[in-house]
Structures are given as structure tokens and as C-alpha cells.
Amino acid sequence: MSHKQIYYSDKYDDEEFEYRHVMLPKDIAKLVPKTHLMSESEWRNLGVQQSQGWVHYMIHEPEPHILLFRRPLPKKPKK
């Protein structure tokens, strides 16, 4: 599979999560399941490479070739 064609967005966040999206080329996108969110082993098997802790959290129906990921931000110590 062509890992060079996978595009990784910059990371962005809110108060709770860090987010990123990953755009897959058409040949890989056709392998994305339409019935469920992928486990880490499933998206890694497609060639997506990112650190541990990312969760495929949403399917964007109009653009199924874009995978939406998030992971919890580290808890800030209370002052």
C-alpha cells in the first residue's frame, strides 16, 4: 500500500481532546469499513501511522476517505 499518499493534518485541540484528521488515497479508502469505527489494529493495517492513544471517533459520511481521530489531553494538575 502507498503510505506516501496518506495525508496527516496538523493537530488541533479543545479543552478535552487533541484531534487530527487523516486523508487516505482512493485505493486505501475503499478498504475502510462503512459499518463501524475502526480499532487501532484496523487503521494501522491500512497503513495509518501515528502514536498510540488515537481513537477513530467519527465517520464523516460525505467524505469517507477522511478519518477523524482524537485522544484525551493530559490532565492538568490542579493548583
Results as ranks from 00 to 15, higher is better:
Ile66Val: 12
Gln52Val: 10
Gln52Ile: 08
Pro62Glu: 15
Thr35Cys: 10
Glu18His: 00
Trp54Pro: 00
Ile28Arg: 07
Ile6Pro: 03
His60Tyr: 12
His65Ala: 08
His21Ala: 10
Glu16Cys: 14
Phe17Ala: 01
Ile66Leu: 06
Ile59Thr: 10
Glu42Gly: 03
Lys75Trp: 08
Pro64His: 07
Val48Arg: 01
Trp43Ser: 02
Met1Ala: 13
Ile59Gln: 11
Pro25Asn: 09
Tyr57Arg: 01
Gly47Ser: 06
Pro25Lys: 04
Glu16Ser: 14
Gly47Leu: 01
Lys75Asp: 13
Phe17Tyr: 15
Gln52Ser: 15
Gly53Asp: 13
His21Trp: 15
Tyr8Asp: 08
Arg20Asn: 05
Met38Cys: 04
Leu68Gln: 05
Glu16Val: 14
Lys75Ala: 12
Thr35Asp: 14
Thr35Leu: 05
Val22Ser: 03
Ile28Gly: 03
Tyr12Glu: 03
Pro25Trp: 02
Tyr12Thr: 13
Ala29Pro: 06
Lys26Ser: 10
Lys26His: 11
Pro25Ser: 09
Ser2Pro: 13
Pro25Cys: 05
Lys11Cys: 12
Ile66Met: 09
His21Cys: 08
Gln50Thr: 01
Gln52Thr: 14
Asp27Ser: 11
Tyr7Leu: 08
His65Leu: 04
Val22Cys: 06
Arg44Ala: 01
Arg20Pro: 05
His36Arg: 14
Arg44Met: 04
Pro25Asp: 04
Glu40Met: 03
His36Trp: 01
Val22Ala: 03
Tyr8Gln: 03
Met58Thr: 09
Ile28Asn: 02
Asn45Trp: 07
His60Phe: 13
Lys76Tyr: 12
Glu61Lys: 13
Lys30Gly: 07
Lys34Tyr: 07
Pro74Tyr: 12
Asp27His: 12
Tyr7His: 10
Ser2Glu: 15
Lys78Ile: 12
His21Pro: 02
Lys78Tyr: 11
Ile28Cys: 09
Val48Gln: 01
Arg44Ser: 06
Arg70Leu: 01
Ser41Trp: 09
His56Thr: 04
His60Lys: 12
Glu63Cys: 10
Glu42Pro: 09
Ser41Ala: 14
Asp13Val: 15
Met1Val: 11
Pro72Lys: 11
Leu24Phe: 04
Lys34Pro: 09
Val55Lys: 10
Ser41Cys: 12
Asp14Leu: 05
Pro25Thr: 06
Leu31Met: 10
Lys79Met: 10
Lys30Trp: 05
Glu16Asn: 14
Met23Asn: 07
Gly53Met: 04
Pro72Gly: 04
Gln50Gly: 08
Phe69Thr: 03
Pro74Ala: 13
Trp43Met: 04
Lys76Ala: 12
Ala29Glu: 05
Leu37Gly: 02
Leu24Met: 02
Lys75Ile: 10
Ile66His: 06
Asp27Arg: 08
His21Ile: 09
Ser39Phe: 08
Trp43Asn: 05
Tyr8Ile: 00
His56Phe: 01
Pro77Gln: 11
Arg71Met: 03
Val55Ser: 08
Glu42Met: 07
Leu37Ser: 01
Val32Lys: 00
Ser51Gly: 14
Leu24Ile: 11
Pro62Thr: 15
Thr35Gly: 14
Lys76Asp: 14
Arg71Ala: 01
Glu61Tyr: 09
Glu40Gly: 04
Leu68Thr: 15
Trp43Cys: 06
Lys75Gly: 12
Met1His: 15
Leu73Glu: 04
Leu68Arg: 10
Pro33Asp: 05
Pro74Leu: 12
Ser2His: 15
Leu73Ala: 07
Lys78Leu: 12
His65Gln: 10
Leu24Gln: 01
Tyr57Lys: 01
Asp14Gln: 05
Ile6Tyr: 10
Tyr12Ile: 03
Trp54Asn: 06
Ile59Trp: 13
Met23Cys: 13
Gln5His: 15
Val55Met: 07
Ala29Leu: 07
Tyr12Trp: 15
Met38His: 01
Lys75His: 12
Ile66Phe: 05
Arg44Gln: 07
Val22Asp: 01
Ile6Ser: 01
Lys26Phe: 04
Gly53Ile: 02
His21Phe: 10
Gln50Val: 10
Met38Ala: 03
Phe69Ile: 07
Val55Arg: 05
Pro64Gln: 07
Leu31Trp: 08
Asn45Gln: 12
Glu16Thr: 14
Tyr57Pro: 04
Ser51Asn: 08
Lys75Met: 11
His60Ala: 08
Ser39Ile: 06
Lys26Leu: 09
Lys76Gln: 10
Lys11Ser: 12
Lys30Asp: 11
Val22Met: 05
Leu67Cys: 04
Leu24Arg: 02
Val48Pro: 05
Tyr19Phe: 06
Lys75Leu: 10
Gly53Glu: 11
His60Thr: 07
Glu42Ala: 03
Lys75Ser: 13
Ser2Met: 15
Ile59Phe: 13
His56Asp: 02
His3Ser: 15
Tyr12Ser: 06
Val22Arg: 02
His3Val: 15
Lys76His: 10
Leu37Arg: 04
Gln49Tyr: 08
